[in-house]
Structures are given as structure tokens and as C-alpha cells.
Design a protein around this nucleic acid. Structure first.
Lengths: 121, 121, 121, 121
DNA sequence: GTGGTCTAGACCACC
DNA sequence: GTGGTCTAGACCACG
């Protein structure tokens, strides 16, 4: 569970993304309470300050809400969640395709590579 | 030409990646001389030292070679470039697919999204 | 401790080599924390940026690992260190012998010279 | 013949050393005329300026003398040459042994490595 | 002119 | 506090 966070991206953004994914794929359900700052900090092996920034960012993009004295909860708004799911997919696909185009890869090359990955699963 | 470098990734790595892409897709041909440190620095609006770091990194991964007092040139080693092209593609595809899987997207969802992107071109 | 760095080799490479030697001969033990950038910079009388470059290079050749916000530590990988030791020895011996051969020295001349050095210890 | 000069040492010092070796092992004899600046520059693929510095350095350490309008000649002083030979060997051996000691290699380890090199010739 | 190294001093992310 | 990045400006070696 405790990632290595070796990437150049700030840890807090890596965590934001990880949590978004867990929410989007339903591992963390709507209405669930996230672990407390300290708990989460221990779980993933980072500083509580960092988790604080993660939760703040999640609140900013409206996938989570903090209730004073109670904790942080995945927002109950299902439509927002569906939208988030679409957004994440859209972003990833767009970024991926533009990446591929910038390297001059044709669509069939990409699809072929996909199949190789499928096969090796 | 002068990028904005708004990403969280260090500028020098963004530049490395950008140049790799240009080389891989043939926009910068084998044997071509890259702009001098100072020139490139002005073009992209960064400090010459940063460009120096970029060129050093490109040399380390053997896509470029520098000749003392003459400049920095795209390596003439075609097989290296083909290998680089494969590596870049492989990395992107792997990252993309694991991303998608982590968000719980099925393969046909991905392919459908691709087609929409195709259509909108 | 503060070297003179009079050689024609860049300071940062001289430092890399010096640290490699200290690690290889066990003066700096596996798991030890190296002095912080600023500390080391003061100790050897160079700019912190130069030390940063040294530590980065040591990390690249996998004899050291840095932990965000904590410091730089000698890698715990014993086999890597044994390998490094072999590499360093191999390099030195190879360079030395080819040097000697290029000057036309015979093996027994070399060995005789060795014995004189032994004696004068 | 035309070296690559990839080392971090200045080209002119690499050339000085190379010529010293050739003289010491008799490939270039006492009294021989060295190629002219331009000739040598072409032979080894460097700038005439660089060769100029090489000859100046060789003159400084008295292994060569320049006669106006005639060229550059290996000095005729045989005892100087014998001395040079000793110096070069002494320097190399001293540097090598101190290197080895700094890495904590014992004498028998060194000798064993020597034998392996002998064997592989 | 070219690239390579170094310093000084700044700011950032993380602990 | 730690390491990592960036800038500004200097000097060097080489062509």
C-alpha cells in the first residue's frame, strides 16, 4: 500500500490521482469516510501535511467533502462521480493520443501494441 | 516554440522528452546539429545551464553526441533510434493501459473513446 | 579534508571517485548517511550545487540512494558494492597495464618497481 | 592514429602523454624531427593551436627542442631520456599503488588481477 | 563560436 | 532540516 513515490510528480498529486481512481472504480464508495489525516499518513508512509494537501485538493475538485469534527467523506453526488469518471478517461485518452501523435505513431501501430499487451496478460 | 513548462515535471525533463519526440518522428533528422546551448536557451526561454543539462541527458541515453567545440548532433546510430522509438511507445502504452485498468475501464470502452477522437479530427 | 582539486578532472568527478573509494574500502559503511549537501559543501570547500551533482552521479551508478527530505544514504545492496569494487579495480589495473605497455615496460620491470615501493613503506 | 580524445583531460595533455610514451619506448628516436604543427594537426585530427600547446609543453619538460625555421626535434640528451623514462614509470606506479591502497586492495589481490590480465593476452 | 564546469543565491517539495 | 531545480553570470578548453 505504501507507494514508493519515486516519480518527479509531487507526492500529493500522485495520491490525489490514486484516490480518484479508487473512487471512480468503486473501491471507495460514495458516502464512505476516508481515513483520518494521521491514519492515512501512516498507511501510505508520508507526512500528515502531505495528506492534508491531498484532501484539500480532492475537496477543491468536489469529489470529497469535509464535515467538521467528523471526517472526510466521498461526496454523495452520483452524477458528479460519473462526470469525474468521464473526465479522467477523457484526459487520459487525449493525453495518450496526443503523445502518440507527437511521436509519429500511426493508429494501427498503437492498436497492434495494445494486442501484444493483451496477449501477455 | 517557447514552451510554458507549466507541468510539475522539471523543465529539463520536459525538454528532453520534447526533443526525443522530435527526433523519433524524424522532425530532427539523424546527423542534424541541434541549436547551440545559448540559441536553444533563447528559443525556449530558459537558462543555458538548463539546456546544458538537457543535452547531457540526451547524450547519456545515446540519442545525441557532442563534438568538442563544434556542437551537439543527433546520433547517426539508426538502430539506437529505432530502439528509442520502441521504448517510448512501450512506456506510453504500458502507462496508459495500467492507468485505464486502475480506473476500471474495459478495453472496449477505451476503443470506443478512441473512435470518438478519430471522428472529431 | 578540503581537497585541493588541482587535477584537470572536474571537481565533481574527483569527488565521486573519492567517495566511491571510501565506500568500497568500507570507511563509509553500507546504510550510512552521507553529510548533507550543505555540510559536505563546506567540508570540501565547494558549492552545494557541485555536491548535488556528485550525489546525483553516485545515485545514477547505484551506490547511493536519496530519500526525500531525509538525506543521502549508501545503498544497502552489498552485491552492487562488491561489483563496484571489482569494476574499480579492473579499471585501474587495465589502465595501468596498458599505460605500462605503451611505454614499453616489461612485466618484471614493473614487479621490481613494486618491490621497491614495498620496501620503502 | 587519430584518437577520439573522449576523456575529461584536455586534448593537449593527452597528446603530450602519448608523445612522451612514443619517445620513451623508442618509437620516436632521439634526434628525430616531429611532424610540423599542421601535419601533426591533420594526422591526429585536432586544431593546430592544440598541437602548438603540445610542443610548447614538451619543450618545457625538455624532451624536445625547437630550432627556428627547421622544426621540432626530440632532444639529443640520452640521460634526460633515461631520466624521463624512470620518471614516467615512477609516476605511474606510485599513482597506481596509492589508488589501490585508497580502495583497500591488498598486494596479493593486485598480483592476482595481473595474472588474469596476463592470461587473457 | 562551441560545450563543460563552477559559483552564488533563490525557490520548491518534503520531513 | 533534507535534496532538487533554476537562474545569472563567470571562466575554461577547444575550434
Amino acid at each position: 500500500m505504501a507507494g514508493d513515490f519515486t516519480s518527479t510528480q509531487p507526492i500529493y498529486l500522485q495520491l490525489v490521482r490514486r484516490l480518484c481512481k479508487q473512487i471512480v472504480r468503486g473501491e471507495i464508495a460514495v458516502g464512505d469516510k476516508l481515513p483520518s489525516l494521521r491514519e492515512m499518513a501512516i498507511q501510505v508512509g508520508v507526512n500528515p501535511n502531505t495528506v492534508q494537501r491531498v484532501y484539500a485538493e480532492l475537496e477543491r475538485i468536489a469529489v470529497v467533502e469535509t464535515r467538521r469534527g467528523q471526517g472526510t467523506f466521498v461526496t454523495g453526488d452520483h452524477s458528479r462521480l460519473r462526470q469525474l469518471r468521464e473526465e479522467l478517461m477523457e484526459n487520459s485518452v487525449t493525453a495518450f493520443l496526443s503523445d502518440m501523435r507527437e511521436m509519429g505513431f500511426a493508429v494501427d501501430e498503437i492498436l497492434r501494441s495494445f494486442k501484444e499487451h493483451q496477449a501477455s496478460d
